[in-house]
């Protein structure tokens, strides 16, 4: 019994010791303006410098630093800002899977790969594009989304990606440059619905959104502005009364939708375009406009 107790104690101690093991970070490459703060002393980052969990690193604009953690995993920081090394604990997790588990994973992946030849299932095998690209930006954001006004409704902020990136970070800031994000979400899709963050933002205050993809400089931040009820209804009343002549309900909805879209109230405009198309389904213009709107802003995708 005594032996068992000693064994359990030793196991526990070893687990605690392992859990508390500090990470060591090695600066592997530096580009641009990168500095390190250790024991309240700031120095320029140099290749080969060892950092601990207590170190802080500052990455300037258009700069890059690559770091190797615990001689195992390499990661890079390209986003300007100041970071504590403890933030990068996740990047230190090395793949400790055994050969057996890796082999079993491989076999399972192979067994569950769909059967079939390229010609029999061509849509799955049409990823080879026989063309050269003359673009070096993988994220593309429609210029109409450089300012978005929002009051209510279901509308996604979307972008297009032309690289193999499968994960994006969507940030909202209070500042046009620098600062910490007030909202951050990592997504696999190329859109984030307003419902995810609108309640977290203050009304009548400009915020700035940005989409980041790994190892790439993001585009300049875009503006998002949440309107309060009174201000929006005042604007809507102005739009409604802007037309003096007679018009059908469908025409009125279409006109309001068009003017709201011009005023960058995309979520609200969508609702009015939908109403116009419902009220007069015969008119091709309403139908086509609604289809184009949905396609342009990736609604329902």
């Amino acid at each position: 019994m005594k032996h068992i107790h000693i064994f359990l104690l030793l196991t526990f101690c070893s687990m605690v010791a392992n859990a508390q093991k500090a990470n060591s970070f090695l600066v592997y490459s530096v580009k641009g303006n990168v500095s390190i703060v250790e024991n309240n002393k700031g120095t320029k980052a140099q290749i080969g410098k060892l950092l601990t969990d207590n170190s802080t690193i500052t990455v300037g604009a258009n700069s890059l630093v690559s770091i190797i953690c615990n001689e195992a995993s390499l990661f890079s920081i390209t986003k300007p800002g100041t970071y504590s090394m403890t933030q990068f604990k996740d990047s230190c997790l090395a793949n400790k899977s055994s050969i057996t588990s890796n082999y079993l994973k491989f076999i399972w992946n192979q067994l569950t790969t769909p059967k079939g030849a390229p010609e029999k299932n061509r849509k799955s095998y049409m990823n080879n594009v026989g063309a050269v690209s003359r673009t070096n930006i993988s994220i593309w954001i429609d210029s109409r989304l450089d300012t978005i006004n929002y009051y209510s409704g279901d509308f996604p902020i979307s972008w297009k990606c032309y690289s193999d990136a499968d994960e994006f970070t969507f940030d909202i800031y209070e500042e046009a440059e620098n600062g910490k994000p007030v909202f951050q979400k990592t997504v696999k899709k190329t859109s984030v619905p307003f419902a995810d963050f609108s309640s977290k933002l203050k009304k009548n205050k400009p915020y700035f959104w940005q989409v980041n993809v790994k190892n790439e400089d993001p585009e300049r931040r875009k503006v998002v502005y949440i309107w309060d009820k009174a201000s929006f209804e005042k604007l809507l009343a102005q739009i409604r009364s802007a037309h003096n002549g007679t018009e059908t309900a469908a025409e009125e909805n279409f006109r309001i939708g068009f003017l709201l879209e011009s005023a960058r109230f995309y979520s609200e405009a969508y609702g009015y375009y939908q109403k116009a198309a419902q009220l007069n389904p015969e008119l091709e213009l309403y139908k086509k406009t609604l289809e184009a709107f949905k396609k342009d802003y990736a609604i329902g995708q």
Binding site: P118, E119, R122, K123, Y125, M126, N127, N128, V129, G130, A131
Partner: peptide, 19 residues
């Protein structure tokens, strides 16, 4: 469209004229 039929990194032997 410039898409060709083939596995990723595989030999291109066919193409789809229309989709």
């Amino acid at each position: 469209y410039a898409n060709l039929i083939g596995e990723d990194g595989g030999t291109i032997r066919s193409f789809s004229p229309y989709e």
